[in-house]
């Protein structure tokens, strides 16, 4: 019985998350419209919100097509891997005090990092299995980018772990007597930049740079397989936002309102930053991207970690 209820709950969580991702696709277009003096989709339903549904239905009704030159197994597996890894990470994210699937898991943060590496596999395999040069170039870019930005991301997170003394997300949120953004402003900025790169969102969308690579690693994908990549991207974006909210912005802590509302407000604020970046900034060149990752963010995050460790040691002594 318990097992059945758990399965039902997980199904519900998944559906809610997928719905959220679909909604974000729509919300992003509206926000972009707001920031760029235009409307965005506003035809179907109130505020045009039916557009999300229409897009989903369109993708689902398309033919499930495997090109003749693609590797059939990996081609099919890659999108699922991307969507799965993004979804699975949410298991350790708490929405409120004691409201999560595995928020207390003592390696929660590590699990998220592992899943994001798995996500990189999905992207790379998808591009490679497509057997097209654009997809391959996108995949190569994606791997290089994800590997080089995972380092500063991990190091920035390590500083948070140092401060809170816990790897579980519940523990980290509970340890925040004040939001860690105050103690870790540099860490927050590094986390955010690396997070944008990690989800290959604009301005760091070089793996799928439309103007150069058609659609990058998902060039050969269509229908719901493309939809999985799309969902994976938006779930990844939500994950980074929710992590930023939980790790740096104090999670469910906040006056007056219930915890989960605070969590949602903070998450959506970070998501808005993502959209805002997309509306404003041009895409850097690939060498600039790499230079930013290795020459600026990595040393900065190391510095941040060292300073945090030093301060923490002094705190212990004092």
């Amino acid at each position: 019985m318990t097992l059945f209820l758990m399965a039902l709950g997980m199904l519900l969580t998944t559906v809610v998350l997928l719905g959220l991702a679909g909604f974000l696709v729509f919300a992003e277009r509206r926000v972009l419209g707001l920031l760029q003096n235009r409307h965005g989709p506003n035809r179907l339903g109130p505020f045009g919100i039916g557009q999300a549904l229409a897009d989903a239905l369109k993708l689902m009704s398309k033919e499930n097509f495997v090109p003749a030159f693609a590797d059939p197994v990996l081609y099919r597996a890659a999108p699922v891997l991307v969507a799965f890894s993004a979804l699975a990470s949410f298991a350790v994210v708490p929405l409120d005090r004691g409201f999560s699937w595995a928020g207390d898991w003592n390696i929660g943060l590590l699990f998220i990092l592992a899943m994001s590496s798995l996500n990189a596999y999905g992207v790379f395999l998808g591009g490679w299995a497509s057997g097209s040069k654009f997809a391959l170039l996108g995949a190569v870019r994606a791997v290089a980018q994800l590997v080089s930005y995972e380092l500063p991301l991990g190091l920035a997170l390590l500083a948070v772990v140092l401060l809170s003394g816990s790897l579980s997300l519940n523990g980290i949120v509970q340890a925040q007597w004040m939001p860690y953004i105050v103690l870790q402003p540099l860490g927050f900025v590094i986390f955010l930049i690396a997070g944008v790169a990690e989800t290959h969102r604009l301005p760091f969308d070089l793996p799928e740079a439309e103007s150069e690579l058609v659609a990058g690693f998902n060039t050969e994908y269509g229908g719901m397989r493309f939809g999985y990549f799309f969902l994976g991207e938006y779930l990844g974006l939500t994950l980074i936002a929710v992590l930023a909210a939980a790790l740096y912005l104090g999670g469910w802590h906040g006056p007056w309102l219930p915890g989960w509302i605070w969590m949602l407000i903070k998450t959506f604020a970070v998501i808005f930053i993502f959209f805002w970046l997309r509306a404003s900034l041009p895409r850097p060149r690939y060498d600039q991207l790499m230079a930013l990752g290795w020459k600026i963010l990595l040393p900065l995050s190391l510095l941040n970690l060292l300073c945090t460790a030093f301060a923490a040691a002094l705190w212990r002594l004092g």
Partner: peptide, 16 residues
Amino acid sequence: LGLWTTLRQIGRGAST
């Protein structure tokens, strides 16, 4: 400056 430029557009409504 670039970020501020886009943010400023929020109140201006659509030119569509």
